[in-house]
Design a protein around this nucleic acid. Structure first.
Lengths: 182, 182
DNA sequence: GGGATCATGTAACAGGTTACATGATTCA
DNA sequence: TGAATCATGTAACCTGTTACATGATCCC
């Protein structure tokens, strides 16, 4: 489970959890459109949304029932399970491992953490900051050992790569500090 | 062709172009391993590499011939075509559209631009800087219009999203400025 | 009557990841 | 004898994108 951790599926769990634990596809879809705060971070087309709902049900994190609507087409109503709530809160407590995941997955975590509980959001931000700080140290030491070795072909390029990562990580840390005080 | 532009395939074109225009899969694979400068940016498993080689041949950017080796297994030798060289140089002159693409695609472009011609690298960096600068202005104005509107629910979160993008874009610009002078 | 909205999907395709298959040869 | 290297791939699986299919109802 190290690589992606699927932010889309956790976002669905989060929305259902905020919304009394239940909802249907069409309703959830609105949150992932333009103009919506979540839509500014994570775009989800209807096709993928329905796909994720089925996957979450297979995983035991949702259950579904059909609700006839009379005139309207019947709704497939999904309800989050205890296992689903457990998975959601586990996910909300873990910072992301890589700087590149901050743009998408961390922002989604932050969105829900803030809505659930400001203290949870504060802890998440603090732990993400620590993770980034460790990464920064690691990158800095890699840079130092590059400088210590004798100059090789391609060494200038490798330094540029490390410097870019370092710059992005530093920017993330500064942003996290501002995020902590809002 | 707007979204990905497949850096892996252009990297293969670039390697062949540097290496007298021809090479075989196993040989190319070494450049994408650990310790190699390109491998620090773009990891390519053998399976995907051979897949890309066939795709590039279908596109007319490579041709292939079989070279028997006597004792060793025969090699499939790929040679870059004029169309392939054209595509490569087109790609090398275009900056990437989004900040998130700098980490992978722009770095690959930069790697080859530097090896082909320092002047090409300098132009690429300058154009990428302009693209980032335009992005920065756009983000800044989006932020300003958010602040001008009356406070809504979720507006704080949307501001955080924009501030993160702005911070990452600013960091990229500063890095590009350092890259220009090395 | 015609378009937007409600509501749920399927199909086709593109791309990536991991693991495995094959089989000879060179080297410790 | 056994591991690493040379050399090329296939298979299964997952994620994601785009477009389309269906059919009713509400509102102008």
């Amino acid at each position: 489970m190290t690589p992606p951790e699927m932010p889309a599926e956790h976002a669905i769990l989060g929305l259902l959890s905020l919304d009394d634990g239940a909802g249907h596809g069409y309703d959830l879809a609105r949150h992932f459109g333009e103009g919506q705060p979540l839509g500014g971070v994570l775009r989800l087309e209807p096709g993928m949304l329905y796909h994720h709902l089925k996957k979450l049900e297979r995983a035991g994190w949702l259950t579904s029932t059909v609700e006839p609507q009379g005139s309207r087409p019947p709704r497939q109503v999904y309800r989050i399970t205890d296992a689903g709530r457990g998975e959601l809160s586990r996910w909300l407590r873990e910072p992301v491992a890589h700087t590149r995941e901050i743009r998408l997955e961390f922002l989604v975590k932050l969105y829900f953490a803030r809505r659930f509980d400001p203290a949870l959001a504060a802890r998440l931000i603090a732990e993400q900051r620590e993770t980034c700080e460790r990464l920064k140290q690691s990158l800095a030491s890699q840079l130092a050992s590059l400088d210590a070795a004798e100059p090789e072909d391609g060494q200038t390029f490798s330094r540029l790569v490390l410097e870019l990562r370092l710059a992005q990580t530093r920017a993330a840390i500064e942003w996290l500090d501002r995020a902590a005080s809002s």
